[in-house]
Computed example of a mutant assay.
Amino acid sequence: MGIRYYAYAFDADLVQQAVDDPHSILSSDPLADAWGLEPHAAMSATTFEQVSPKRDMLYLDKAWSALQSLTRSGTGSPATGSCYRMFEGNVTMHDMGWDPWVRTILPEEVPSIRDELCATDESEVRLWARTWRSRHGADDADELRYVLDYLRRAQKFVESLAADGRGMVYLIG
């Protein structure tokens, strides 16, 4: 199925829980949440509609690696590194598959991430995309649409988090 990105919002009163046990903030079946499946079912029909409210969950499919590249500070990146923290990380591969990457973003970290991420516009993404090549073989125009769609979703999500004083826990896995 591939490695995907899922983020779940938490309220400020759950900061200590999110730091001590980030998995307690995550769903036990994030793909089911993202695709509208019955959780933990061996067979289930999908609605392809996210079950969790968009203010509570961000699903970035496999676009996380492109957004990671886009937001990593350095030559060709419009970002200075603050919003990279939202996408940083990778799974740890081993014989039986992989161990996911999990990170907690505290409510006080969200405004700087939001400011930088929301300042990234389509023209900057188009400049960055000239050097980005997907590992999935999509053509450049399709890849650009895909990345822009998920960038906009991420921007809306962090805007909502900042407005509500919430943090997030994300999983790449």
Rank of each mutant, 00 (worst) to 15 (best):
residue 2 G to M: 12
residue 2 G to T: 13
residue 3 I to R: 02
residue 4 R to S: 03
residue 4 R to G: 01
residue 4 R to N: 08
residue 6 Y to K: 00
residue 8 Y to S: 06
residue 9 A to H: 07
residue 9 A to W: 02
residue 10 F to N: 04
residue 13 D to K: 06
residue 14 L to F: 11
residue 16 Q to A: 05
residue 16 Q to E: 13
residue 17 Q to V: 08
residue 18 A to R: 11
residue 19 V to Y: 09
residue 19 V to P: 09
residue 22 P to L: 00
residue 22 P to K: 00
residue 25 I to Q: 03
residue 26 L to N: 13
residue 26 L to R: 13
residue 27 S to V: 13
residue 28 S to W: 13
residue 29 D to S: 06
residue 29 D to K: 02
residue 31 L to F: 15
residue 33 D to M: 15
residue 34 A to Q: 10
residue 35 W to K: 12
residue 36 G to F: 01
residue 37 L to T: 04
residue 39 P to V: 12
residue 40 H to I: 04
residue 41 A to R: 04
residue 42 A to K: 15
residue 43 M to D: 11
residue 45 A to T: 06
residue 45 A to L: 08
residue 46 T to V: 12
residue 46 T to H: 05
residue 49 E to C: 14
residue 50 Q to L: 09
residue 50 Q to P: 11
residue 51 V to H: 04
residue 52 S to L: 02
residue 52 S to C: 07
residue 52 S to V: 01
residue 53 P to A: 15
residue 53 P to E: 15
residue 53 P to Q: 14
residue 53 P to C: 12
residue 54 K to Y: 05
residue 56 D to V: 01
residue 56 D to P: 07
residue 57 M to D: 08
residue 59 Y to E: 08
residue 59 Y to S: 09
residue 60 L to Y: 01
residue 60 L to Q: 04
residue 64 W to F: 15
residue 66 A to Q: 00
residue 66 A to V: 01
residue 68 Q to E: 04
residue 70 L to W: 00
residue 72 R to T: 15
residue 72 R to K: 15
residue 73 S to W: 14
residue 73 S to T: 12
residue 82 S to C: 08
residue 83 C to H: 07
residue 83 C to K: 02
residue 83 C to Y: 02
residue 84 Y to K: 01
residue 85 R to P: 02
residue 86 M to R: 00
residue 88 E to D: 10
residue 92 T to Q: 06
residue 97 G to P: 12
residue 100 P to F: 02
residue 103 R to E: 06
residue 104 T to F: 03
residue 105 I to N: 02
residue 106 L to D: 04
residue 107 P to S: 07
residue 108 E to T: 09
residue 109 E to Y: 07
residue 111 P to S: 13
residue 111 P to M: 12
residue 112 S to A: 15
residue 113 I to W: 14
residue 115 D to M: 06
residue 116 E to I: 14
residue 119 A to L: 03
residue 119 A to I: 05
residue 120 T to D: 09
residue 121 D to A: 10
residue 121 D to L: 10
residue 123 S to R: 13
residue 123 S to C: 06
residue 125 V to D: 01
residue 128 W to D: 12
residue 128 W to P: 11
residue 130 R to Y: 14
residue 133 R to A: 11
residue 133 R to S: 09
residue 134 S to P: 10
residue 134 S to N: 12
residue 134 S to E: 13
residue 135 R to H: 03
residue 135 R to T: 10
residue 139 D to L: 03
residue 139 D to Q: 02
residue 140 D to I: 07
residue 144 L to Y: 11
residue 145 R to P: 04
residue 146 Y to F: 14
residue 146 Y to K: 02
residue 146 Y to C: 03
residue 148 L to S: 02
residue 149 D to V: 03
residue 149 D to M: 10
residue 152 R to S: 08
residue 153 R to Y: 11
residue 153 R to C: 11
residue 156 K to D: 14
residue 156 K to G: 10
residue 156 K to W: 05
residue 157 F to Y: 11
residue 157 F to W: 08
residue 157 F to P: 07
residue 159 E to T: 05
residue 159 E to A: 03
residue 160 S to E: 09
residue 160 S to L: 01
residue 161 L to V: 09
residue 161 L to K: 07
residue 162 A to I: 10
residue 162 A to G: 07
residue 162 A to N: 11
residue 163 A to M: 15
residue 163 A to I: 08
residue 163 A to D: 15
residue 163 A to F: 09
residue 167 G to H: 05
residue 167 G to N: 11
residue 167 G to S: 09
residue 170 Y to L: 01
residue 170 Y to C: 00
residue 171 L to E: 05
residue 172 I to S: 04
